[in-house]
Amino acid sequence: MAVAKKEQELLVTVSPHIRSDETVSRIMWTVSLSLLPAFVLGVYFFGPKAVYVTALCIIGSLFSEWLVQKMTGKEVTLSDGSAFLTGLLLGMNMPASAPFYIPLVSSFVAVAITKQLFGGIGYNIFNPALVGRAFALITWPRAMTSWIEPTAAFVGLDAKTTATPLGLLKEGGMQKLLEVFGDKTSLYMDLLLGHRAGSLGETSVIALLIGGAFLLYKRYITWHIPFSFLTTVAVLAWVFGGKGGLFTGDPLLHLLSGGLMLGAIFMATDYVTCPSTRTGQVVFGIGCGLLTILIRLKAGYPEGVMFAILLMNCFAPMIDRNLKSKVFGLKKEAQK
Protein backbone atom coordinates (compact mmCIF):
# COMPACT_ATOMS: atom_id res chain seq x y z
CA MET A 1 0.00 0.00 0.00
CA ALA A 2 1.42 3.33 -1.07
CA VAL A 3 0.37 5.00 2.13
CA ALA A 4 2.32 2.72 4.42
CA LYS A 5 5.53 3.04 2.44
CA LYS A 6 5.56 6.78 2.76
CA GLU A 7 4.70 6.82 6.44
CA GLN A 8 8.26 6.40 7.68
CA GLU A 9 9.23 9.66 6.04
CA LEU A 10 6.52 11.93 7.39
CA LEU A 11 7.79 15.31 8.40
CA VAL A 12 6.78 16.50 11.87
CA THR A 13 7.08 20.16 12.84
CA VAL A 14 4.87 22.46 14.87
CA SER A 15 2.34 24.80 13.27
CA PRO A 16 2.03 26.96 11.26
CA HIS A 17 2.85 24.77 8.28
CA ILE A 18 2.72 27.52 5.68
CA ARG A 19 4.60 30.77 5.26
CA SER A 20 4.11 33.82 3.08
CA ASP A 21 6.58 34.26 0.23
CA GLU A 22 7.97 37.50 1.65
CA THR A 23 11.70 37.46 2.36
CA VAL A 24 14.29 39.87 3.69
CA SER A 25 16.22 39.82 0.45
CA ARG A 26 13.12 40.62 -1.57
CA ILE A 27 12.50 43.64 0.65
CA MET A 28 16.10 44.86 0.37
CA TRP A 29 16.29 44.47 -3.40
CA THR A 30 12.90 46.12 -3.86
CA VAL A 31 13.96 49.12 -1.77
CA SER A 32 17.17 49.30 -3.84
CA LEU A 33 15.06 49.26 -6.98
CA SER A 34 12.89 52.08 -5.66
CA LEU A 35 16.03 54.25 -5.34
CA LEU A 36 16.81 53.79 -9.01
CA PRO A 37 14.91 56.84 -10.38
CA ALA A 38 16.69 59.21 -7.98
CA PHE A 39 20.03 57.60 -8.72
CA VAL A 40 19.53 57.85 -12.47
CA LEU A 41 18.71 61.55 -12.18
CA GLY A 42 21.76 61.98 -9.96
CA VAL A 43 23.89 60.51 -12.73
CA TYR A 44 22.12 62.72 -15.26
CA PHE A 45 22.94 65.87 -13.29
CA PHE A 46 26.35 65.06 -11.89
CA GLY A 47 27.82 62.84 -14.57
CA PRO A 48 29.80 59.60 -14.50
CA LYS A 49 31.45 60.55 -11.23
CA ALA A 50 28.17 59.81 -9.53
CA VAL A 51 28.31 56.22 -10.77
CA TYR A 52 31.93 55.96 -9.71
CA VAL A 53 31.34 57.21 -6.15
CA THR A 54 28.26 55.02 -5.66
CA ALA A 55 29.98 51.96 -7.07
CA LEU A 56 32.85 52.45 -4.62
CA CYS A 57 30.38 52.69 -1.74
CA ILE A 58 28.62 49.49 -2.80
CA ILE A 59 31.88 47.61 -3.31
CA GLY A 60 33.16 48.88 0.04
CA SER A 61 29.94 47.80 1.79
CA LEU A 62 29.89 44.33 0.27
CA PHE A 63 33.56 43.82 1.04
CA SER A 64 33.14 44.99 4.66
CA GLU A 65 30.17 42.67 5.18
CA TRP A 66 32.07 39.74 3.70
CA LEU A 67 35.21 40.51 5.70
CA VAL A 68 33.57 40.73 9.12
CA GLN A 69 31.37 37.70 8.50
CA LYS A 70 34.42 35.69 7.43
CA MET A 71 36.48 36.87 10.38
CA THR A 72 33.77 36.11 12.91
CA GLY A 73 32.98 32.76 11.35
CA LYS A 74 29.42 33.69 10.49
CA GLU A 75 27.50 32.77 7.39
CA VAL A 76 28.16 35.22 4.56
CA THR A 77 24.87 36.88 3.66
CA LEU A 78 25.72 39.22 0.79
CA SER A 79 22.76 37.97 -1.23
CA ASP A 80 20.22 39.32 1.27
CA GLY A 81 20.83 42.70 -0.34
CA SER A 82 21.18 44.64 2.90
CA ALA A 83 24.85 45.52 2.43
CA PHE A 84 24.14 46.48 -1.17
CA LEU A 85 21.32 48.77 -0.03
CA THR A 86 23.52 50.40 2.61
CA GLY A 87 26.20 51.01 -0.01
CA LEU A 88 23.69 52.45 -2.45
CA LEU A 89 22.19 54.77 0.18
CA LEU A 90 25.63 55.87 1.33
CA GLY A 91 26.64 56.62 -2.26
CA MET A 92 23.53 58.67 -2.80
CA ASN A 93 24.44 60.68 0.30
CA MET A 94 27.88 61.60 -1.07
CA PRO A 95 28.89 64.55 -3.18
CA ALA A 96 29.75 63.31 -6.67
CA SER A 97 33.14 64.95 -6.35
CA ALA A 98 34.24 62.85 -3.36
CA PRO A 99 37.76 61.39 -3.77
CA PHE A 100 37.94 57.59 -3.91
CA TYR A 101 39.04 56.98 -0.30
CA ILE A 102 36.01 58.67 1.22
CA PRO A 103 33.44 56.19 -0.16
CA LEU A 104 35.70 53.26 0.70
CA VAL A 105 36.46 54.26 4.28
CA SER A 106 32.95 55.43 5.11
CA SER A 107 31.35 52.29 3.74
CA PHE A 108 33.65 50.32 6.03
CA VAL A 109 32.52 52.46 8.97
CA ALA A 110 28.91 51.95 7.91
CA VAL A 111 28.84 48.21 7.40
CA ALA A 112 31.76 46.78 9.38
CA ILE A 113 31.51 48.97 12.45
CA THR A 114 27.95 50.29 12.66
CA LYS A 115 26.22 47.14 11.45
CA GLN A 116 28.34 44.01 11.78
CA LEU A 117 30.17 44.80 15.02
CA PHE A 118 26.85 45.49 16.66
CA GLY A 119 25.61 42.03 15.69
CA GLY A 120 24.75 42.28 12.03
CA ILE A 121 21.42 42.83 10.36
CA GLY A 122 18.67 43.54 12.86
CA TYR A 123 20.94 44.49 15.74
CA ASN A 124 22.47 47.82 14.77
CA ILE A 125 21.34 50.84 16.76
CA PHE A 126 22.14 53.45 14.13
CA ASN A 127 21.36 53.66 10.47
CA PRO A 128 24.62 52.35 8.96
CA ALA A 129 24.64 54.56 5.86
CA LEU A 130 24.07 57.67 7.95
CA VAL A 131 26.85 56.83 10.40
CA GLY A 132 29.13 56.32 7.41
CA ARG A 133 28.18 59.71 6.08
CA ALA A 134 28.46 61.43 9.46
CA PHE A 135 31.92 59.96 9.86
CA ALA A 136 32.94 61.26 6.43
CA LEU A 137 31.49 64.70 7.09
CA ILE A 138 33.40 65.08 10.34
CA THR A 139 36.63 63.56 9.04
CA TRP A 140 36.72 65.31 5.66
CA PRO A 141 34.57 68.40 6.18
CA ARG A 142 35.89 70.22 3.15
CA ALA A 143 35.61 67.39 0.63
CA MET A 144 32.17 66.44 1.93
CA THR A 145 30.82 69.97 1.47
CA SER A 146 32.35 70.91 -1.83
CA TRP A 147 29.46 70.55 -4.17
CA ILE A 148 29.74 70.57 -7.93
CA GLU A 149 27.22 72.33 -10.08
CA PRO A 150 24.71 70.09 -11.81
CA THR A 151 25.42 70.21 -15.54
CA ALA A 152 23.19 67.60 -17.12
CA ALA A 153 25.49 67.48 -20.11
CA PHE A 154 28.37 65.17 -19.27
CA VAL A 155 30.72 67.86 -20.52
CA GLY A 156 31.80 69.75 -17.44
CA LEU A 157 35.15 68.07 -16.85
CA ASP A 158 36.18 70.90 -14.59
CA ALA A 159 32.85 71.24 -12.90
CA LYS A 160 32.46 74.43 -10.93
CA THR A 161 31.91 74.13 -7.22
CA THR A 162 28.96 75.85 -5.67
CA ALA A 163 26.83 75.91 -2.53
CA THR A 164 23.67 73.95 -1.86
CA PRO A 165 20.37 75.82 -1.63
CA LEU A 166 20.30 75.37 2.15
CA GLY A 167 23.89 76.63 2.28
CA LEU A 168 22.88 79.70 0.33
CA LEU A 169 19.88 80.19 2.57
CA LYS A 170 22.00 80.00 5.72
CA GLU A 171 24.58 82.32 4.25
CA GLY A 172 22.49 84.99 2.55
CA GLY A 173 18.82 84.25 3.10
CA MET A 174 16.10 84.08 0.48
CA GLN A 175 17.64 87.07 -1.29
CA LYS A 176 20.76 85.10 -2.16
CA LEU A 177 18.74 82.06 -3.29
CA LEU A 178 16.70 84.10 -5.70
CA GLU A 179 19.85 85.66 -7.13
CA VAL A 180 21.12 82.21 -8.05
CA PHE A 181 17.88 80.55 -9.17
CA GLY A 182 16.00 83.51 -10.67
CA ASP A 183 12.42 83.71 -9.45
CA LYS A 184 10.59 81.56 -6.93
CA THR A 185 8.91 79.37 -9.54
CA SER A 186 12.16 78.35 -11.15
CA LEU A 187 13.66 77.80 -7.71
CA TYR A 188 10.89 75.33 -6.81
CA MET A 189 11.05 73.68 -10.24
CA ASP A 190 14.81 73.17 -10.01
CA LEU A 191 14.47 71.77 -6.50
CA LEU A 192 11.69 69.43 -7.56
CA LEU A 193 13.62 68.06 -10.52
CA GLY A 194 16.94 68.02 -8.73
CA HIS A 195 18.81 70.61 -10.75
CA ARG A 196 20.80 71.90 -7.82
CA ALA A 197 23.96 71.21 -5.88
CA GLY A 198 23.84 68.52 -3.23
CA SER A 199 24.53 64.88 -2.49
CA LEU A 200 24.26 62.95 -5.71
CA GLY A 201 21.08 61.07 -4.87
CA GLU A 202 19.22 63.58 -2.73
CA THR A 203 18.51 66.35 -5.20
CA SER A 204 15.64 65.08 -7.31
CA VAL A 205 12.57 65.33 -5.12
CA ILE A 206 10.23 64.08 -7.82
CA ALA A 207 12.28 60.91 -8.39
CA LEU A 208 12.45 60.25 -4.66
CA LEU A 209 8.68 60.70 -4.39
CA ILE A 210 8.15 58.20 -7.19
CA GLY A 211 10.34 55.69 -5.34
CA GLY A 212 8.46 56.42 -2.10
CA ALA A 213 5.10 55.94 -3.75
CA PHE A 214 6.26 52.59 -5.06
CA LEU A 215 7.33 51.50 -1.55
CA LEU A 216 4.01 52.64 -0.12
CA TYR A 217 2.18 50.69 -2.81
CA LYS A 218 4.25 47.59 -2.03
CA ARG A 219 3.58 48.21 1.67
CA TYR A 220 7.27 48.07 2.46
CA ILE A 221 6.89 51.40 4.23
CA THR A 222 3.83 53.07 5.69
CA TRP A 223 2.92 56.74 5.72
CA HIS A 224 3.65 57.18 9.42
CA ILE A 225 7.31 58.20 9.46
CA PRO A 226 7.54 60.16 6.18
CA PHE A 227 4.28 61.98 6.80
CA SER A 228 4.97 62.96 10.40
CA PHE A 229 8.59 63.87 9.58
CA LEU A 230 7.70 66.05 6.57
CA THR A 231 4.70 67.66 8.23
CA THR A 232 6.72 68.61 11.29
CA VAL A 233 9.42 70.16 9.13
CA ALA A 234 6.88 72.07 7.04
CA VAL A 235 4.98 73.44 10.02
CA LEU A 236 8.07 74.45 11.99
CA ALA A 237 9.70 75.96 8.90
CA TRP A 238 6.60 78.02 8.31
CA VAL A 239 6.39 79.16 11.93
CA PHE A 240 10.03 79.79 12.72
CA GLY A 241 11.81 79.83 9.36
CA GLY A 242 11.14 83.39 8.26
CA LYS A 243 13.29 86.45 8.76
CA GLY A 244 10.23 88.65 9.22
CA GLY A 245 9.01 87.05 12.44
CA LEU A 246 6.74 84.12 13.19
CA PHE A 247 4.68 82.53 10.42
CA THR A 248 6.73 84.00 7.60
CA GLY A 249 8.88 80.99 6.74
CA ASP A 250 8.83 79.10 3.45
CA PRO A 251 7.75 75.52 4.17
CA LEU A 252 7.97 74.45 0.53
CA LEU A 253 11.60 75.51 0.26
CA HIS A 254 12.47 73.46 3.33
CA LEU A 255 10.54 70.43 2.10
CA LEU A 256 12.20 70.43 -1.31
CA SER A 257 15.78 71.07 -0.29
CA GLY A 258 18.58 69.26 1.45
CA GLY A 259 18.39 65.56 2.15
CA LEU A 260 14.91 65.71 3.61
CA MET A 261 13.05 63.59 1.04
CA LEU A 262 15.79 60.97 0.86
CA GLY A 263 15.96 60.95 4.65
CA ALA A 264 12.24 60.91 5.40
CA ILE A 265 11.31 58.29 2.82
CA PHE A 266 14.33 56.00 2.70
CA MET A 267 16.54 56.51 5.76
CA ALA A 268 14.25 57.25 8.71
CA THR A 269 12.07 54.32 7.64
CA ASP A 270 14.91 51.80 8.04
CA TYR A 271 13.16 48.96 9.89
CA VAL A 272 15.98 48.12 12.24
CA THR A 273 16.61 51.60 13.56
CA CYS A 274 13.10 53.02 13.80
CA PRO A 275 10.33 52.05 16.25
CA SER A 276 8.18 49.05 15.33
CA THR A 277 4.77 50.30 16.37
CA ARG A 278 2.86 52.75 14.22
CA THR A 279 2.27 55.18 17.09
CA GLY A 280 5.95 55.01 17.94
CA GLN A 281 6.79 55.75 14.34
CA VAL A 282 4.72 58.93 14.36
CA VAL A 283 6.54 60.10 17.49
CA PHE A 284 9.84 59.19 15.85
CA GLY A 285 8.95 61.15 12.72
CA ILE A 286 7.95 64.22 14.71
CA GLY A 287 11.24 64.01 16.64
CA CYS A 288 13.20 63.79 13.40
CA GLY A 289 11.38 66.83 12.01
CA LEU A 290 11.96 68.84 15.16
CA LEU A 291 15.68 68.16 15.26
CA THR A 292 16.03 68.78 11.53
CA ILE A 293 14.55 72.25 11.78
CA LEU A 294 16.47 73.00 14.97
CA ILE A 295 19.76 72.24 13.21
CA ARG A 296 18.79 73.94 9.95
CA LEU A 297 17.73 77.16 11.64
CA LYS A 298 19.92 77.39 14.71
CA ALA A 299 23.01 75.19 14.34
CA GLY A 300 26.25 75.59 12.41
CA TYR A 301 25.39 73.08 9.69
CA PRO A 302 23.02 74.12 6.92
CA GLU A 303 21.42 70.65 6.84
CA GLY A 304 20.18 68.63 9.80
CA VAL A 305 18.39 65.55 8.46
CA MET A 306 21.31 63.19 9.01
CA PHE A 307 21.97 64.15 12.62
CA ALA A 308 18.26 64.30 13.36
CA ILE A 309 17.71 60.72 12.25
CA LEU A 310 20.83 59.47 14.03
CA LEU A 311 19.76 61.12 17.27
CA MET A 312 16.26 59.71 16.99
CA ASN A 313 17.72 56.24 16.30
CA CYS A 314 18.95 56.29 19.92
CA PHE A 315 15.40 56.77 21.12
CA ALA A 316 13.79 54.06 18.98
CA PRO A 317 14.05 51.25 21.57
CA MET A 318 12.76 53.53 24.30
CA ILE A 319 9.85 54.66 22.14
CA ASP A 320 8.96 51.03 21.48
CA ARG A 321 9.04 50.24 25.17
CA ASN A 322 6.81 53.16 26.09
CA LEU A 323 4.37 53.08 23.22
CA LYS A 324 3.52 49.41 22.99
CA SER A 325 0.81 48.24 20.67
CA LYS A 326 -2.71 48.20 22.14
CA VAL A 327 -3.44 44.74 23.47
CA PHE A 328 -6.84 43.31 22.54
CA GLY A 329 -9.17 43.27 25.51
CA LEU A 330 -6.90 45.36 27.70
CA LYS A 331 -7.64 48.95 28.66
CA LYS A 332 -4.85 51.31 27.64
CA GLU A 333 -4.29 52.33 31.28
CA ALA A 334 -3.94 48.72 32.34
CA GLN A 335 -0.99 48.18 30.05
CA LYS A 336 2.43 48.53 31.56
Partner: peptide, 10 residues
Protein backbone atom coordinates in the same frame (compact mmCIF):
# COMPACT_ATOMS: atom_id res chain seq x y z
CA UNK B 1 17.40 34.91 10.31
CA UNK B 2 17.49 37.69 12.84
CA UNK B 3 14.47 39.93 13.32
CA UNK B 4 14.78 43.00 11.10
CA UNK B 5 12.02 44.74 13.06
CA UNK B 6 9.84 45.35 10.04
CA UNK B 7 6.81 45.34 12.33
CA UNK B 8 4.69 43.15 10.04
CA UNK B 9 3.92 40.78 12.90
CA UNK B 10 2.75 43.67 15.06
Amino acid sequence: GPCIRCGNCI
